[in-house]
Design a protein around this nucleic acid. Sequence first.
DNA 1: TATTATAATATACATTTGTATTTTAGTCAA
DNA 2: TTGACTAAAATACAAATGTATATTATAATA
Lengths: 200, 200
Amino acid sequence: MKKELTEKQEKVLEFIRKFHTNNAMMPTVREIAKNFKLSIGSVQQHLRALLSKGFLVKRGSLSRGIDFPNRKTFSQVPVLGTVHAGTFLEQIEDASDYIYINTDITRNKQCFALKVKGDSMEPSGIVEGDTIVVSKGEQPSNGDIVVALVDNESAVKMFFKEKGKIFLKSTNPKYPTLSSDDYDIDVVGKLIYLVRQYKG
Amino acid sequence: MKKELTEKQEKVLEFIRKFHTNNAMMPTVREIAKNFKLSIGSVQQHLRALLSKGFLVKRGSLSRGIDFPNRKTFSQVPVLGTVHAGTFLEQIEDASDYIYINTDITRNKQCFALKVKGDSMEPSGIVEGDTIVVSKGEQPSNGDIVVALVDNESAVKMFFKEKGKIFLKSTNPKYPTLSSDDYDIDVVGKLIYLVRQYKG
DNA sequence: TATTATAATATACATTTGTATTTTAGTCAA
DNA sequence: TTGACTAAAATACAAATGTATATTATAATA
C-alpha cells in the first residue's frame, strides 16, 4: 500500500507523467520548477517526498535521473501485413508500421505483427481488424493459437499435434479442421499478444 | 528514401535505440562514448552525421536532447481493477499496474484500464482476462461498447439509446438486455482499446 | 507548548553535459 | 595531387543540471 500524496505532490507527479509521455524523458528539476513557477528548492522537496513515498526512484546523479518504479520498456514490433488474406512473408522488408509492446511480453523472442482478416477465430476473441503479435519459430503446444502457412496461404488457427500429425482448427465451427495429411502445413509462429483499437 | 549510414553510424544508432528502450531516455554524448570506448569528439561526429542524414533530430541544447524523428509517445494508463466482478471505482487510488499505449489513441482523453471477467461480450471478441482501455466521460453512440455501473455493479456492454432510454446489450445472447427503466445505469466511459496477452 | 510535515524562497557549488576547436590519419574519387 | 568524407583523439569552455544549505511561514498534532 502506497503512502498518500499531498495535493501538490500529486500535481508534480502528474506533470512528470505528462512530460515523460510527451518527451520520452524525465524533466529536470528546473523544468518542473518553471512549469509551476516554483523555486528549485521547492521542487527538490516535492521530489524528495515522491522518492521517499515510493512514487519515483533515482538512477544515480544523472541528468533527468528520476524514474518510475517498475517502468516498462518497449520493443518495436513491425507490422508485416495481413493474415488469412494471402501471403505476407514477402512484405517483411517494408514494414510500414510498428506497434510497441512491453519487453516483458516479447522477452528475447523475434516477433512480428499482422492484421487479422476473416472470422475463423471469432469464438476465441480474435476478430477482423485486430493486430496480432507472433513470436517466430517457437514450438507450439496443443491448444496454442498459431500463424501458419497452409499450402502457402497464411492463416490463424488453433494448433494440435497427435501421433506426428498436425491439425489446425478454426474455433469458428463453420470452417473445417485442416490436417497435415491433406495440406502442406508450416507453422510460422505462436500468438503472444493481441491489440484492438476501437474507432472513436 | 533515407540516406545510407556507415557501419559505425549504424552501430551508434542501434546503441541509442537500445539505450532508449531500456532507460526511456536518450544517452548523453559521454554515455555513448563510454559504450564504444570512443572519445567525445568522435561521438559528436557520428551524431552530427546521424542528424544531417535525418536519423535523429535535436531538441535545443538540452541534456539528452536528441530524439528520433516521428517517435511515438505513450500514455501511462492505470489499471484500476476488474470489471463485471463488482465495483472498481474505490480502487482508483492505488492503481497497482499501468499499461502504456500510444498517445495517438488516447489523445487527450482521460483513460483508465480494467481487467475483464466473464463471457458476456465474447461474441464481439472480448474474453476473460483481456485488458480494456476506457475513455472517461465520452458520449457514446449507438453500438459503442461501454463500461457502465448498473445498480453500482460494473459491466461491459453494448450501448443503445432510444427515445431517452438507455439499453445495455450483452452480445452473448445468454444474458438479457438491461434497460434504464429497470436499472440505475451510469455510463462510465467508452471502450477505445483492448490488449490481450497469451501465456507463453 | 513544542514538534513535525508541508510549502516556499534564495543562494551557492560541484558535477554533468553539450559544444567548439584543433590535430592526426585513412580512403576514395575527381 | 587535391579535396571530401569518415574516423578518432585531446582539450577547453559554457551551459545545463543535481545537490546542499539556510531561512521563513503555515497548519496539524501530540
